[in-house]
Every structure is written in structure tokens, then in C-alpha cells.
């Protein structure tokens, strides 16, 4: 039995007039790449927020990195990484300053930060641009840097919210290669995306429809079950069942 990083049982979030997440149940193991798909408004963001300790569930239970989401949210925040397409880095700080800032936020010692930073800059071939403002970097580089910073403190799990939106195809693939490497190091990756080919890169995929998990399996398993050649076809078949339209 592999170590479980996410243990989610009947997690429910109810807003005044509708149920955003309805008895969501699943587990994710250490080092797994877990794809979390769903149409706009299916409840992906709601679930992700609860798991990051940003919002309280109405009922159900969940453990993230072994910590309870009701009363150990501070612990959870120390052991997760988060990156979204919208907010990544401070554009008016340099590459180095951004890394130092996040290292500091997670309580790493300056010596430790310095050592890791050298290594990271080399890996990203950003050593020469280390003192440049992030604003001046191409989008693809920003995304890669943002991801590296999200796992800088070696979290148990990293949440990626549409990390590759608008990025060119080569960078997009380089980004996923970084994700692979991360998972090999034992960091669990939990990602949402609108690119269906990216769903194929995941070990397992869950598709949310109207607040419920409608399908969950490996990409191959899903393709067999729903008789589709690609994940795009699978997604179309599954998500079309949605009745809910508005957020």
C-alpha cells in the first residue's frame, strides 16, 4: 500500500443555493501525477481551494499530506506548493528576489536558499538572467520559474491550476517534463488543465461534472470504458452530461 498524500472522503461544499462539490471521494498516492478535469463551473476550483486550506468544507473529511483540512490548515500550507496561471511571480522583483522571497516565506535558512538557488538557476539556465526583473522574461520561462518556486520548499504535493495556458507548444512540453521529474522525486502533482492531450500525461485522471466525480481512472482505462480514441473524446462524452450551466 503506497503512502497516501490525499485522502478525501465525501467532501462536500454547499453554497446558499447549490452544491459546488458533492460528496467528492478519492485518494492520491505519493509521487502520483493526478489530473483534475472538468468544464468551467464543474467545481474543480472549489475542491482545490478546500484542499489548499483556503475554504472550509460543509461536510466530509479530507487529509492533505497527512493533515486534517478542518483544524490543521496551517500545517497543510507548509507542506503544499501552489501555482496558478494567474498569479505566479512578482513581476517587479528579479528572479533571485522572487526565489529568496518564497524560500523565506517557507522558513528556509539563507544558506539553504542560496545553495538551492544556484542549482535551480543552473537547471533553468537562468544564471545569466538571475538579476533581471521577472517582467522581462518570456512567458514560458516565467511559468517554468513559477513551478520551480512552487516546489522550492520540497512540499509533499504541488497543486497546479491551469499551469500551461497560452504557452507555446515546446515550452508546454518542457513544462510537463519538469512535472515528470518532480513526481520521480516523490512529490505528488495535482493539476487542472484545458489541454486534453496533457490529461494523457497523468497517471490518473478524474473528471468532475456538476460537482461530482463522474469518472476516474488511468487515461487508458478511461479510453477503454468510454470507448474513445483520445482523452478529448472521453472528456466530451463524460462532461456533456452536465446540466449545470452557470457558475
Amino acid at each position: 500500500m503506497p503512502e497516501l498524500v490525499l485522502e478525501i472522503d465525501k467532501l462536500t461544499k454547499q453554497f446558499e443555493d447549490f452544491v459546488a462539490a458533492d460528496a467528492v471521494t478519492f485518494t492520491v498516492s505519493k509521487g502520483e501525477i493526478f489530473g483534475f478535469l472538468g468544464a468551467n463551473g464543474a467545481g474543480k476550483t472549489t475542491v482545490m481551494r478546500m484542499l489548499c486550506g483556503l475554504s472550509m468544507p460543509t461536510s466530509g473529511s479530507a487529509k492533505v499530506a497527512g493533515f486534517d483540512i478542518y483544524n490543521q490548515t496551517e500545517e497543510i500550507k507548509k507542506h503544499i506548493g501552489y501555482m496558478s496561471q494567474k498569479f505566479c511571480l512578482y513581476e517587479d522583483l528579479t528572479v533571485k528576489e522572487n526565489i529568496t522571497l518564497y524560500g523565506g516565506i517557507y522558513g528556509l535558512s539563507s544558506a539553504h536558499i542560496k545553495e538551492k538557488m544556484e542549482k535551480l538557476l543552473k537547471e533553468l539556465s537562468l544564471t545569466e538572467d538571475a538579476n533581471k526583473l521577472v517582467r522581462g522574461l518570456p512567458l514560458g520561462w516565467k511559468q517554468k520559474l513559477a513551478f520551480s518556486i512552487a516546489i522550492f520548499h520540497e512540499p509533499k504535493i504541488v497543486f497546479l491550476d491551469e499551469p500551461t495556458g497560452g504557452v507555446d507548444p515546446i515550452t508546454r512540453r518542457q513544462f510537463w517534463e519538469m512535472i515528470y521529474e518532480t513526481s520521480r522525486k516523490g512529490i505528488t502533482v495535482f493539476a487542472t488543465t484545458h489541454y486534453m492531450d496533457e490529461a494523457e500525461y497523468c497517471n490518473r485522471v478524474a473528471i468532475m461534472v456538476d460537482g461530482k466525480i463522474e469518472a476516474m481512472d488511468s487515461p487508458d482505462g478511461l479510453k477503454k470504458t468510454y470507448n474513445g480514441k483520445t482523452m478529448d473524446e472521453v472528456f466530451y462524452v463524460v462532461a456533456r452530461k452536465a446540466k449545470r450551466q452557470a457558475d
Partner: peptide, 8 residues
Amino acid sequence: TGVDAISR
């Protein structure tokens, strides 16, 4: 951009 596969 940012719209799910079905709406697209």
C-alpha cells in the same frame, strides 16, 4: 482561452 473543451 480559459474555456473548457466542450464550450470551445
